[in-house]
Design a protein around this nucleic acid. Structure first.
Length: 588
RNA sequence: CGGGGCGUGGCGCAGUCUGGCUAGCGCGCCUGCUUUGGGAGCAGGAAGUCGGAGGUUCAAAUCCUCUCGCCCCGACCA
């Protein structure tokens, strides 16, 4: 391809509003153009990379035995009503009504396709002999995100590979899941991404029923806890906190006292007023658990983990209580709750950390007052079986597997594998007959990859000040070929010939035939980040040589022009297969 | 949904507080000449409903009201 024949609008300056590297570079390199918040046009260069990621995903899905199909993006709303997900998705589900003759038809744009595919399977699969089977598609999904952001990382419309497995037993589901898990490792590996499979919020099957594939990146929206020592990795939503010594500190108990804390309703305000530290406080959260109030005690510097609380007490719905409930339960406005002297006898749960807090500061269940010198066992009590791990893991917490220190890092969720169980098959009557003529709901798994996030994740983790650094596998073109003087006939003859030879050898080459100064070409080449740069300039041409430089190398090497096409093609083939040079780039 | 920031030729910005002549600057674009290995120089040129509506005023990019769009932070952590 010739630069002047395609459409690559690069930009020297960063458009206002773009902040994170992937967004800035995708805009500047002419990969995307914003149409509105959360919706982008993929320009020719961006589309080529997107298609490459898509192709890798498709190849690995096919290799894993998954079968491709394509479902519609528009779906009947009734399907979502049957599974209760109209309510579950809320405003995220894009719904609309269209008029057809004199009927009104309610539709929704698919944010994911469990309903559509389960409905399909319920009509055509009815015997154990037809399973296991994994079906997938690569298709645009629509989600009306509360807040689209970070360029292409969170958008209202995105390209997703979604696969669904249908199995007759949990054991068979496990096998399908393992195949997808392994395929995901190959996909992210081939894309040159550093990735981390982490345990995620699990579904109804429990155990290790869900993994997210995370790309560690500063600007990721998720946080993962990772143990370098044993490899344990989990989403913060899920990460367990290992047990540490629960030996209370050997300090004499202080006298219980009430102190005035006017208008100090937050941990920070109380600490400032009483000159204490957050870890000396006990935070008392009043939750509404399936409509009944409960109290949850945490050390002042800890964050509650609602998933853990929900599981510990075994409820479906959990939300912080409304202020009138708090007023009733504690007898005080929000901000002054404490475990001592609650007005109603409600269940009290506590994070394990509470066992080592002595002489704590807590709310007094009274407006503008706190208690000091509060001690477990003397001033309040929590039944032993209500001490649980109820908080988010923090940097340095013990690993639940090996007790080494956990580290926390941000990451981009690029893929998710999930054991669904029978939620959708039961709701949509997708049943099969086993060899004993017994009817069972089909056991399902689902497996998603955000294709756009592969691209954004790669750029987020592979760029420098000058621009993107693509691996060959995802690069819009594999070779960038720059004749420095396009008005010089011998130069252009050589450039055209090399271009044609490379193309014939199956190499994707971009010939920069613009009549611009060398500096402009070099800057743009670095910006769009094509892995291999070939320069045909007066320096080398006189000696029958050209210049070759990998995007991540500092210095070029010279190559004989007459054997160049063959050697370049060979290098590109090596990089496609192993990405060895790309993966070693970090050593520099 | 709460908070903050920003809307001025294609892109990046100044001008707004303190109203005043024909709305400027850099990049890009077009023409010509020179130049030619890391975003060239000179000369000439095209291109702007100052996000939109209403209002105040002799006079509005600038002041007031409403509204739309974009970006960032937070979303009940007592």
């Amino acid at each position: 391809m010739r630069w002047t024949k395609t459409f690559i609008p690069t930009m020297k300056e960063t458009p206002e509003g773009a902040e994170i590297p992937s967004h800035v570079l995708m805009l500047r390199a002419g990969l995307i153009n914003q149409v509105m918040a959360g919706a982008y046009t993929y320009l020719p260069l961006g589309l080529r990379s997107l298609r490459k990621a898509e192709r890798i995903v498709r190849e690995e899905m096919d290799a894993a035995g998954a079968i491709e199909l394509l479902m519609p993006a528009i779906t009947p709303l009734s399907l979502w009503e049957q599974t209760g997900r109209v309510k579950a998705f809320g405003d995220v589900l894009i719904q609309f009504t269209v008029r057809r003759q004199n009927r009104k038809i309610q539709m929704a744009l698919g944010p994911t396709h469990e309903e559509v595919i389960t409905d399909l399977v319920s009509r055509h699969i009815s015997s154990y002999r037809q399973m296991p089977i994994t079906l997938y598609q690569i298709q645009t999904k629509f989600r009306n995100e509360e807040r689209p952001r970070f360029g292409v990382l969170r958008t209202s419309e995105f390209l997703m590979k979604d696969a669904y497995s249908f199995n007759t037993s949990v054991k068979s589901l496990d096998e399908s899941y393992e195949k997808m898990y392994a395929a995901y490792c190959r996909i992210f590996g081939r894309c040159g991404l550093e990735y981390l499979p982490v345990e995620a919020e699990s579904g109804p099957i429990g155990g290790d029923a869900s993994h997210e594939f995370m790309v560690p990146a500063e600007n990721g929206e998720d946080t993962v806890a990772h143990c370098q020592a044993c490899g344990y990795a989990a989403n913060l939503e899920r990460a367990e906190v290992g047990c540490r010594d629960c030996v209370p500190p050997n300090v004499p108990p202080a006298k219980l006292a009430k102190v005035a804390t006017p208008n100090a309703g937050t941990i920070a305000q109380v600490c400032a007023l009483l000159k204490c530290r957050p870890e000396e406080m006990i935070k008392t959260l009043i939750y509404s658990a399936d409509e009944k109030p409960i109290a949850v005690l945490l050390r002042g510097d800890r964050e509650a983990n609602e998933g853990k609380i929900r599981r510990a007490i075994g409820v479906e719905k959990l939300a912080l209580a409304e202020s009138d409930v708090i007023q009733r339960v504690t007898g005080a406005p929000v901000g002054f709750a404490g475990p001592v002297g609650l007005k109603e006898a409600i269940p009290v749960w506590a994070d394990r950390d509470l066992l080592i807090v002595r002489n704590a500061v807590t709310g007094a269940n009274e407006r503008d007052a706190h208690l000091t010198g509060v001690n477990l066992g003397r001033d309040f009590d929590v039944p032993e079986d209500r001490f649980r791990d109820l908080r988010n893991a923090a940097e340095g917490d013990p690993c639940p597997r090996c007790s080494a220190a956990l580290s926390l890092r941000h990451a981009i969720e690029a893929g998710h594998v999930f054991k669904l169980g029978t939620k959708y098959s039961e709701a949509l009557a997708a049943r099969f007959l086993d060899d004993q003529e017994q009817l069972h709901p089909i056991i399902m798994g689902c497996y998603g990859i955000g294709i756009n996030r592969i691209i954004a994740g790669l750029i987020e983790t592979s760029h420098d000040d000058a621009g993107i650094i693509w691996p060959v596998a995802l690069a819009p073109y594999e070779v960038y070929l720059a004749p420095l003087k396009v008005t010089d006939e011998p130069t252009m003859i050589a450039a055209d010939r090399l271009h044609d030879e490379l193309q014939q050898a199956g190499v994707e080459v971009l010939l920069d035939d613009r009549d611009v100064r060398a500096g402009v070409k070099f800057k743009d080449a670095d910006l769009i980040g094509i892995p291999l740069r070939i320069v045909l300039g007066p320096r080398g041409l006189a000696e029958g040589k050209l210049e070759l430089k990998w995007r991540w190398d500092a210095e070029p090497e010279m190559l004989d022009l007459d054997v160049a096409a063959e050697q370049i093609a060979e290098m590109i083939r090596e990089e496609r297969a192993e990405a060895t040079r790309f993966k070693e780039r970090c050593r520099d």
